[in-house]
Each structure stands twice: as C-alpha cells, then as structure tokens.
Nucleic acid binder design. Structure first.
Lengths: 246, 246
DNA sequence: CGGTTCCTTGAGAGAACTCAACGTCGGTGG
DNA sequence: CCACCGACGTTGAGTTCTCTCAAGGAACCG
C-alpha cells in the first residue's frame, strides 16, 4: 500500500493514535488503510458546547472516540436528561442507530474530547469490500448489546455502582485509582439512581472498607468484595475473583 | 440457481416458511440460497423440556425462530431466574454472544416452538462471501441494541407495561386483541416487576379504560392513551399517535 | 470575593416489593 | 362425573429501598 495515500494528514495522525482498539490498527493492512482513508475529519468536542448529534437528526456519520469521554442521552417531555451510555476511546458512537436512518439520542462531550468522523456513505460500501470491517462492527455491536442486556436488570444501588466502577476501571485501564471523567450526577443518571443515592452508596461502601474516597478519586480497596457485589449483574470486569456459576 | 440444491428437505421447508423476515427470504437470491443451504437442521422446543443453550456453553450455533416463543434468561446464585428477552418468529437468538465464545444466558421455550439451527462455523465464512448477510446480521443486532437501550431506563410499572403491550402487539401482528404467549410471571420478570404489580397495573389500566381483560387475552381499547404512556420509553410500536419530539 | 457546580447529609414520602391468602382454570385419575 | 392437584391470577397488608425536597459545605473560576 502506498504510504502517501490521501488524506495524508488524517493517516499520519492515525499512525500515532493512542487508541489500540481502533479499526485503523487492524491486523489486516488493507482494511486498516481503507478505514484510515475513509475517515473524513477529526473533530474536537467540548462539554456543553454543541453536540455531535441530536435526537432525530439524519444519520450521516458514525464517530470513533479518539480521546476524552462522551455520553449519549435522550431528553423527555419534561426536559429531563436520561443518559443511555458513555463512550471512551476506541468506542464507536452510533452502533445502535445503524439500522435506522436517524439518531435516537443526543451525543455530547463529558470532558474535552476528540472523535474521528466515519461517513456512513463510505462505510457501507467499505463493509462490502472488506467483510472484516463488517465483522468488526458486528462484534462491537454484539458486545454492546450483551452489556446493555446485562445492566438492564433491576439491581440494588450497591450492585449497580460496584459493577459500574469495576467496568470503568477496566475501560479506563487506570489501575485501582479511578478518576471518573463524569460527575456523580451523570453516574446516577446513567445507573438510574438519584445523585444522593450515588453519594450515600459510595460512602457506605467506604465505611465497609470496599473502597476509599479522596480528592474526587475512588480507590478500590477490596476488589473481591466489589466483584461479589457486581457478580449478579454479570458483566465482564477484568479479572474475576469469583468462580463462574454453571 | 438449481432448484435441487442440497439439503433438499430444509430448503423445501423454507419455501413454505411463514417467517417473512427470515434471511432465507432475502431479496438477493444468492444470499437466500446460501443461507438456506447452510441451515443444519430444524429443532422443536417444548417449554420446560431441555434448553437450546445454557449459560457458559460453547457457542456453536445461532438459532432462527421459526415459530412459537422463546426466552433467554440467566439464573443467579439464589436460583432466581431473570429473563433478558423474548424471541418471536423471525428473531435470531444469540446476537448478543456472537462476539464471545460462549453463551451468557439460557434459552428455553415459552410455548411449543421451532427453531432453525444456524451453524456459526458456516455462518462466519458465509458472511465474508456475502457481505449482505453480514449487513443483515449487523442491522438486527443494531436494532436489538437500540431496543435494549430504550427499555433499560427507569420507568414506572405503567409505562413499562404499556410499552411492552404495544411492542408485543406489533411483533405478534395480532391486531388489538393480544394473547400473550407467556404468563404474567414471565412478563413481570422481564419488565423487572413483581407478578402482583403486573396484575395490579393491568387492572388499573382496565379501570381507566385503556384496555379490557377477558379470557387470558388483552384487548387494546384506548391505543392513544397507551402510546402516551409508552412514549417516554421511546421504542417504535407501530403507528404512533404522538408527534415526535424534536 | 460572589457565583456556580458539585458533593454531602437529613427527613419524609412513595412506588413497588414481599408475604400471605384465596379464586380460577385445566388437567389427571379414581 | 367428580375430587384432587398444580399453575396461574387476584387481592390485601405491611415493609423497604430509593426518591424527593431541603439545606449546607467544598471546590473551582471569573
């Protein structure tokens, strides 16, 4: 593959992209090149300023998160926000609307972020030419579906929070000291808990020695206890301390 | 395409299959033929007798529902069942585990059912040869993801039930008289409601003139009111009476 | 400094749950 | 034909978890 394939700028950037799970890092060189060549632009996003998409917008692009943290959310008739998911580097935004023609949620930045624009008009034919790309998309969508199904149960505030923390730790690859990119209000909204409940539950877990709270960071102290709490939720959260039930 | 392509039996059956949304009815003849040829077998399923898959089983097949109604569910440490989804004719079972190597849930029949066995070992190469098949799989997975995300909010018992009924009516294509294939216990389990709450809420909706209950069937009386209730859930349930929010 | 956003804590309210009991229906077998 | 049984549905009473409302403290920023 010629190294000077257009668009040069985007491709050059992709070579130093920190996101290892991006399709541009695919083992298949042809796929990676085709993916990279397709990326239309890179777009910065700031919290509170504009949105990547709004509910009802025609679906023109997917977005690949390059850095930061995004959230997708709906707004009900009373103006209340409901967060449907957070997106971290490597995630693709819009997998849930690929089958439809328009967005079902708003997408905004939680912290200063950057996304790569994936034009659907080019992605669709690309998936036909490179079935591997379609397979990767299918895999990611499937994984997101499994997660959505797992977390949609009715779990206690403790179970939800434990599962969320373990998952964020795995996603952020931050070790035992978690600095959540989003405020507790957003965590609660996503987990269907009041902000106060999030706070109280965290304090309660701290009192019981599961974690320690300091300086807006959360330190996982007793991982085994958290895993035991999160286990019924049934999501993978890195190394599990529990034997898998039959 | 030769009409006598093997396996004859399965293909012949597919020609009279009542499921219009099955991939065997794809507009693309080559795809439809390839799909049909791949189907390994047809499998009957009875409620309570055996299961299509068990949590942890290696993933060998997907299943295409041909008739009846299936449910996927997990069982927690206390032996409590949690239903993650119902599958009706045309649905593919296993889209949430395609990215992994093993099942994350048990799948059993709710009523006497029949499924077509889709061997993954053949499906994967087929998706490479026929990108259209991969696209269809991706579309269905995407649609399921959108549904799972929509339903995972914290809605009242009334909202959940209204959305569920409207969705089942659309899925069953049964007009305004719904005969749910599953008992109220399963409905409640799926919607994260106690059986008693399901019953009480149905009665309450009946008192308010939204529906009428008779002979184990549910008659939709005031569709507009149900749509209004279900609207915040945000799933498509056929004709909507409400203007779409911006 | 104000002002804003975020986090924390307390008190009361409410929606749904659990427990318990009873009614109904469809089968099975005496 | 009727008695029995189990599964399902219905109804009531009390409990619980989480929410809402209210208020105050801490951190950050112009």
């Amino acid at each position: 593959m010629p190294f000077d394939a257009a668009p040069q700028t985007v491709k050059a950037d992709c070579l130093v992209c920190p996101v290892q799970t991006c399709l541009a890092r695919s083992a298949n060189c042809k796929e990676a090149d085709a993916w990279t060549a397709m990326l239309a632009a890179r777009q910065p996003m700031m919290p509170g300023s504009g949105a990547l998409s709004r509910c009802g917008d025609p679906l023109r692009n997917l977005y690949s998160v390059r850095g930061g943290c995004l959230k997708s959310y709906t707004v009900d008739a009373d103006g209340n926000e409901r967060i449907r998911g957070f997106y971290l580097p490597g995630d693709l935004v819009g997998l849930d609307v690929m089958a439809g023609g328009s967005w079902l949620s708003n997408v905004g930045a939680v912290v200063p972020s950057q996304v790569c624009v994936v034009p659907l008009a080019e992605l669709r034919p690309l998936m036909s030419i490179h079935p591997g790309v379609a397979m990767r998309m299918l895999e990611q969508t499937s994984r997101e579906l499994a997660l959505a199904l797992a977390v949609s149960g009715d779990y206690s505030a403790e179970q939800r929070l434990a599962a969320f923390l373990l998952r964020m730790r795995a996603r952020l690859e931050c070790g035992d000291l978690i600095r959540l990119p989003m405020p507790q209000r957003d965590v609660g909204n996503y987990l269907r808990l009041a902000t106060e409940t999030v706070c109280r539950t965290l304090k309660s877990l701290e009192r019981r020695g599961c974690l320690s709270l300091a300086d807006k960071a959360i330190h996982i102290v007793d991982e085994a206890a958290l895993c035991a709490l999160a286990d019924p939720v049934g999501i993978e959260c890195g190394a599990s301390f529990l034997p898998k039930a039959a």
